[in-house]
Write a protein that binds this DNA or RNA. Structure first.
Lengths: 250, 250
DNA sequence: TTACCAACCTAACATAGGTTATGAATTACC
DNA sequence: GGTAATTCATAACCTATGTTAGGTTGGTAA
């Protein structure tokens, strides 16, 4: 069983348009398979990310450990699935990964993937963008799953705050946010009434001052501590391999 | 303000490695900006997907309308963000998108993006894979946000069922699933006890028969109806532009 | 000014799901 | 084979959040 049988190849092959050259290229990427035991860890959150894997046998999953001791599973991987492509575009793993039962995985290095992209650094950039958006989505998934309403809202506001700061739209810890509580409720999956209640709570604790579309976070760091915010998914630099590639391009 | 100021460019520019040629290429992609009013819809779910947009002014958001009349917001987009890249790799929109307040957006066609990828159909394949994974994640997000436990579990099981069917691992509506209820609870964000309760419920309704790692769905379609399953995100063919590109490659 | 409407707040009540606990069934390990 | 450790089922109780409802505020238009 080779990469030909994986998800990518299935996608490409259904169109009957994969050249022999491409197939050879892909097979060239294939490193030696690894035999994994049940529960064996593929990688841990925040380790260096330099490869992805095709799951050949067995089931695996990716997950994040939460501060309260529990964990949120992001995805289960079945035979033929690719695991680890999510971190392509980041220097470090955003989530841990482990086997469920015993199986076989086949690793591929990101470096080789970069080379596939050839001279177009733009392609890599687009991929990085898509990847980042996915990372933000994962972050939200985690908060929806396991946190209380006030933690969700705090996380949400702090994320908006960081994203606005990047584009210089924050002045004196205040910013413009054209969202109604109803919109926020649709985003966080809670009722509008509870959004209001939760804002009141945060206000009483002096964490958020809100007047219609004007929001002030008197102590952003306190908010961040409340939610144990991990901002690497918002603002990370490109990994070294990216910049190497970019500098090499004419 | 041009694409240079967007997320992609920020990422690439921080490394100081974007060639004049690349910049010119990007600027060439830029179509004429569109002035949008508040609440104006960019596109609706399941429309043809053929472009993405850079939000230049104003806020926007992507969302899915749910069967119960409410909606789940997937993401808010601030000035400088790219909206619609999520659907790259699909023929149709997976979510709707609309403005929040008035603003300006700048559309780019997918077709041009494909051409950027140049001759490497593999690059496009990798992107498509990453995109699909993101789509599955979004689907989960929606279920975490707005649905009751039995709907979440039904959706989860039906998704596993479909993914296993693709790789021929389903026999007589039965399949092997090496997950404990605890793992499932970590994935769905509910307590293990409630997973058990919910399995009991589904069993009593004759929808799911489960014996340890052996699962049978006597009537998969009934399950699918229960959750109004949209399987386009699992099993979609590549869009026409992809196959054109692939056939054109030597 | 007046009327109207959307956004928001707060309260009272209902309920889905969390928590804790106990026992039964399976599986893993000596 | 026997013992321990998982996994699962079910029950009793509790709490966070949903629901319904009524009132306040602020903006907008006639």
């Amino acid at each position: 069983m080779s990469l030909i049988d994986t998800e990518v190849m299935r996608g490409l092959s259904t169109q009957g348009a994969l050249s022999q050259e491409d197939k050879a290229l892909l097979l060239g990427l294939e490193l030696s398979p690894r035999y994994m035991s049940a529960s064996e860890v593929l990688w841990q959150e925040s380790e260096d990310a330099d490869l992805f894997c095709v799951v050949k046998e067995g089931w695996a999953y990716s997950y994040r450990n939460l501060k309260n001791g529990s964990k949120q599973i992001l995805k289960f991987y079945l035979p033929g699935d690719i695991i680890g492509i999510r971190d392509f575009g980041f220097t470090r793993r955003l989530a841990s990964a482990a086997m469920i039962n015993k199986g076989v995985i086949c690793p591929f290095s990101y470096q080789q993937l970069f080379e596939l992209f050839g001279r177009s650094s733009l392609a890599a950039g687009i991929v990085a963008t898509a990847t980042r958006q996915q990372a933000q989505l994962s972050e939200r998934l985690i908060y929806l799953g396991k946190y209380a309403a006030h933690e969700q809202l705090a996380h949400f506001l702090y994320e908006i705050y960081l994203r606005l700061k990047r584009i210089n739209a924050v002045r004196d810890n205040s910013f413009f946010m054209p969202l109604t509580q109803e919109l926020i409720s649709d985003a966080l999956g809670m009722s509008p009434v509870h959004v209001s209640r939760t804002f009141s709570m945060l206000r009483e604790e002096g964490l958020v001052i809100r007047n219609r579309q004007h929001v002030k976070l008197p102590d952003p760091e306190a908010l961040a501590r409340l939610v144990e915010f991990n901002d690497s998914y918002i603002d990370e630099f490109l990994p070294p391999s990216f910049s190497e590639l970019l500098k090499a391009s004419p």
